[in-house]
Design a protein around this nucleic acid. Sequence first.
DNA 1: TACATAGTGTTATATTATAACAACTAAAAA
DNA 2: TTTTTAGTTGTTATAATATAACACTATGTA
Lengths: 132, 132
Amino acid sequence: MHKEHNLTKNQKIIFDLIDKSSQPLKAYSILYNVQKKGIKAPLQVYRALDKLVEIGKIHKIESRNAFIACHNSSCQVAKATAFSICEICEKVTEISSAGLSKYLANFKDKDGMKYSKYNLEFFGLCKKCTLK
Amino acid sequence: MHKEHNLTKNQKIIFDLIDKSSQPLKAYSILYNVQKKGIKAPLQVYRALDKLVEIGKIHKIESRNAFIACHNSSCQVAKATAFSICEICEKVTEISSAGLSKYLANFKDKDGMKYSKYNLEFFGLCKKCTLK
DNA sequence: TACATAGTGTTATATTATAACAACTAAAAA
DNA sequence: TTTTTAGTTGTTATAATATAACACTATGTA
Ligand SMILES: [Zn+2]
Ligand SMILES: [Zn+2]
Ligand SMILES: [Zn+2]
Ligand SMILES: [Zn+2]
């Protein structure tokens, strides 16, 4: 389980919004959705996002500039992430595969370097879109 | 080897610049560097970049919003890419590992889905920075 | 208390990327 | 050859994403 971080007010508001969402949210879409709660400026959103990413409560989907809550209790906090992304409906799912994370954590490049941190994004069609 | 695409003037100017660079280049840095060759607007750069990515001559490093030439003649054009990124000096290297690409191309998620397209970015310290 | 650390609110600005439209070019179909 | 088509270009304007700088506030710790 994640280490308990006592989220601050802004962090909590923003985490709750992302956590409730079924798909990744973009920073300015988050901003519009929390303005009624008193968060008025982009920087307030980005600061909370930065912290939430840092402590592993959310992940950034780099190819989409969007943020998703981590639902993978065994994931190596913010360090080793893998996602599948549907190129039609943009559904994003965090992959939690012991085999995959073990393979990547042990991967060595030509020089024998190991990299404990990585981000992997798979692209394809989700089940639903495949059937269409 | 890559299929030969006859690059247009702008595409060639921009590819040559990226190809000569030892590190990934950002779009606006490219723009400043090609203004003397008559390319004046961001869109001219982005259009060439889009095309070059599409045909696999360059790749985008998503976590850095930067572009690097593909030097991996056997890479599955623009579809399956892996990079190592040094978190100190920002050196980026394209990984060409038959084992890795085979593993990822055959990876199936929980639902048995396979994804032929992926982007993987490893983070760590390069050899040089490790020694410091 | 005094101090350090982290978070906040705010304004302004930097950076990255696309929309829309008219004109041009090259290649291929008639 | 002419016509048509798809693709590229040049241009202006604007959208979308992200950070700098500064004054202030809350919280924990010695
Ligand atoms: Zn996770
Ligand atoms: Zn889908
Ligand atoms: Zn490549
Ligand atoms: Zn380095």
